[in-house]
């Protein structure tokens, strides 16, 4: 079942939730929905990868199920787990019953703890499954994802195979700290999300910080783009642009000048060396 009817509808409905998508992003979302394939989003930190999944969920009124990956995550935390403690209690409570009875009972729905992947598959409603920071997980987890993402089914040996009632809209994000396996990539549509172009970023600023004057917004965006071109360790992200614009409003600045920029640089840049470089290149005092 398709969530969206056209690329334009994707743009419009995402915009209603406050997420301004470029044509590229809207096309990719539309295709992922239409072709029923997971969408793999890569890009630098802070360009709105996770936000996109949230916006799709809000725009299509589907429940968002999030699997946050981290180093050492395993099947028991991603897919499902048997509630061992409860099983032990059940076995102790039923002393004296036969092996057949105990076995049939202990591996039932009641003792199953569904984790995000299984929840998304079993859900009664349309869901958006966000697998965040996939690159942080170990290689074994990717193998697990392969089965889930290609057939949208999960096999629990004791219960049998569970197939999805609704194919979830799957978004995988990656910061590229580790190369994802070729097999996983091939099952996904790929979207490289980069910093927005100047025009889009101005529009984002206008929608997020409506009180900001047009000319100041233009100057802010120009400044941010210059900073991104300086080869910093951590170039300012879109959310930092928005934070900075809000800071400028709070400071009552009407135009950018040396002292305002120097004072508020900490909002944009988070490393001492980055701030030094910016000071040098922008010829700021002190």
């Amino acid at each position: 079942m398709a969530l969206f009817a056209s690329v334009d509808e994707v743009s419009a409905r995402l915009a209603e939730t406050g997420y301004l998508a470029s044509g590229e992003v809207a096309t990719a979302v539309f295709l992922a929905d239409r072709l029923g394939k997971p969408l793999l989003i890569e890009g630098p930190a802070g360009v709105g990868k996770t936000e996109l999944a949230k916006a799709v969920s809000a725009a299509s009124a589907a429940e968002l199920i999030r699997l946050q990956c981290y180093e050492g995550i395993d099947e028991a935390r991603a897919l499902y787990e048997w509630n061992h403690a409860k099983q032990l209690l059940r076995i102790t409570a039923g002393r004296g019953e036969s092996w057949e009875q105990a076995r049939a009972d202990v591996f039932g729905e009641e003792f199953l703890l569904p984790r995000p992947l299984l929840s998304a598959i079993r859900s009664e409603h349309q869901t958006v499954l966000l697998i965040d920071e996939t690159d942080k997980a170990d290689l074994e987890v990717e193998g697990l994802l392969l089965e889930v993402l290609s057939d949208f089914q999960v096999t629990v040996p004791e219960l049998g195979t569970i197939s999805a009632r609704h194919v979830p809209f799957v978004v995988l994000t990656s910061n590229g700290t580790r190369e994802l396996s070729e097999a996983l990539r091939r099952r996904c549509l790929f979207l490289h999300l980069d910093f927005p172009d100047e025009e889009l970023e101005r529009r984002i600023l206008r929608s997020r910080v409506p009180a900001l004057e047009e000319s100041l917004a233009a100057a802010v965006v120009e400044m941010i783009n210059a900073l991104r071109g300086m080869g910093l360790r951590k170039p300012p992200s879109v959310s930092e642009t928005v934070d900075w614009a809000r800071t400028l409003l709070e400071l009552g600045a009407r135009t950018l000048d040396e002292s305002v920029v120097a004072d508020s640089m900490g909002v944009l840049l988070k490393h001492r060396t980055d701030i030094e470089i910016a000071h040098e290149k922008l010829q700021l005092p002190g």
Partner: peptide, 12 residues
């Protein structure tokens, strides 16, 4: 262009 890139590309 965007659609073909999504289907054919695998890395940035």
């Amino acid at each position: 262009r965007a659609g073909l890139a999504a289907a054919l590309l695998r890395r940035g």
